[in-house]
């Protein structure tokens, strides 16, 4: 049933800001985004927030609710008690633009650095044949809605701006794993995963997996297998020897 909730919402821009208190009505079945919309319609018309689908499919409305990275549209008000104050703040790992909107361009920059899908040269449209079991591994990672909650929560960059140049983050580790496990892809990105995208920074604390709204097993199914493949590739003496020989042969 409807009740009045206490909300604290961070408002400000790249220069300054603070938490603002609101008392706002909440109705049965609502999510936090509904309440933010009610604030816009009744008390704070210029409150900035990103959102699109309101169905957990587009990954736009990422923010932190009581300090936890969440999608505003998938956080139901019934998960809080009526007496609880709900605090909504912008993603911490990215620079604030205004209110709950942050500059997430870091992610688009990283996306562009990873070499794209490379099918076998000369493959014709309609030609690929792949077994369901073989595509399923990469399909799990392609469920990603790019909400960037994993990027936001990862302690390698959350409070360490200096690591950002050398670290692509969990979202792009699953992209690397997706391409590595893609039945058609021909390119080897394993060395690059280690050397350019900072896979080695990850010490598998699984915070990314915990916040993923799509329940992708980022650490277990992407990062750990990629770490193993990197190790196989770089440190297996037979592979190392084979690489030496073929390289020499090519010369």
């Amino acid at each position: 049933m409807a009740y009045d909730a206490q909300f604290r919402v961070w408002r400000g821009d790249d220069t300054a800001g603070d938490l603002h208190d609101f008392t706002v009505q909440v109705n049965e079945g609502e999510v936090v985004l509904d309440v933010i919309h009610r604030l816009q319609a009744t008390q704070a018309p210029d409150l900035a927030v990103r959102w699109n689908c309101k169905a957990g499919k587009c990954g736009s409305c990422s923010a932190e609710i009581n300090g936890r990275p969440r999608l505003l549209c998938m956080t139901r008000m019934s998960t809080f008690t009526e007496a609880e104050t709900v605090t909504v703040t912008p993603l911490r790992a990215f620079p604030v633009i205004r209110d709950l909107v942050t500059d997430v361009s870091f992610n688009y920059t990283k996306a562009r650095e990873i070499p794209s899908f490379a099918p076998p040269p000369g493959m014709k449209p309609g030609e690929p044949r792949m077994a369901q079991v073989d595509v399923e591994r990469s399909q799990e990672f392609r469920k990603c809605i790019e909400c960037f909650l994993c990027q936001n929560t990862c302690h390698v960059v959350r409070d360490h701006e200096e690591n950002k140049t050398a670290f692509a983050g969990p979202r792009y580790f699953i992209r690397l794993a997706e391409l590595d496990m893609h039945p058609l892809d021909q390119l080897d990105r394993k060395n690059a995963a280690q050397e350019q995208y900072g896979l080695g920074f990850c010490n598998i604390t699984k915070c990314c997996t915990e916040v993923c709204p799509e329940h992708i097993k980022i650490t277990d199914n992407a990062i750990i297998p990629m770490k193993e493949r990197v190790v196989d590739n770089r440190y297996d003496p037979l592979v190392w020897l084979g690489r030496k020989i073929t390289r020499r042969g090519a010369d």
Binding site: F117, P119, P125, P128, M130, V135, S138, Q139, H182, D185
Partner: peptide, 8 residues
């Protein structure tokens, strides 16, 4: 598919 899509 040649751009990377993975259909069932």
């Amino acid at each position: 598919e040649l751009w990377g899509a993975l259909f069932d």
